[in-house]
Design a protein around this nucleic acid. Structure first.
Lengths: 117, 117
DNA sequence: AACGCATATATAAAATACTTATATATATTT
DNA sequence: AAATATATATAAGTATTTTATATATGCGTT
């Protein structure tokens, strides 16, 4: 609902985090997990998801396994060793960024800023 | 340094937060505050800043006062009443987003996700 | 039986927001 | 004299996401 321009750049680390925690996942499952875990606040659209997954595969960060389940094709993604390192880095970056944002959002930091001058 | 795609969408609320805390500020001052408060982690570039400030002015969220200080032109920005409401909304949105990210980054939520099924 | 909804992957066009590069000009410090 | 800090501004380029569209099966309900 809320205009989520905020997502930009965060989707890739979020996907990598999910793959870190879950060994292997397929695309649809990833979108559902993000929805669930964020209590509906983050909608990871297919148009965003698949290009990211394909890019990760191209870069050798994930490998895929295709399986036919209930007559439907399902493509599982899992991190390679390289991908695990990429994931660690990207997740750490996002964590640092979140901490920085929290400082900036802290109530009345303006006071400290004024006092520091 | 770090590729900050992460910033996207967060700059506007950050600027609004600064203006909320500081009554009036000029462009250069805003960039310096962000740098200081984020310990150098967030570089708000002029190419990003001024378009946002001009947009806020167009939208009636801020008003400007020009002053000549040390022979240099300085343009102060301050929130209008409308702007204060915009700021509250945008800041609240960013806070909620940060909280959501923290849930997603929480170590081993994967476990909870598995248990919840 | 038909309809809608959930499941499942995929791509292209459009919108958006930021980075990088460039321009101009004064004041201060080395 | 040169470099750095102060001060605002815009345009071109890039990257990432949203929106729209395509295809296809399974399940539940009326």
């Amino acid at each position: 609902m809320a205009s989520n321009d905020l997502l930009k750049g965060t989707l890739k680390p979020i996907i990598l985090k999910l793959l870190t925690e879950n060994k292997r996942m397929y695309g649809y499952e990833i979108t559902q997990s993000v929805k669930e875990l964020s209590k509906g606040k983050i909608e990871l659209t297919f148009g965003a998801l698949y290009p990211i997954l394909h890019k990760l595969e191209q870069d050798g960060a994930v490998i895929t396994e295709s399986e036919i389940i209930n007559n439907r094709n399902r493509i599982y993604y899992s991190l390679t060793e390289t991908g695990k390192n990429t994931a660690k880095e990207k997740i750490a970056e996002l964590e640092e960024f979140v901490n920085t944002l929290r400082i900036l959002l802290k109530p009345n930091y303006g006071l400290e800023y004024v006092l520091a001058r």
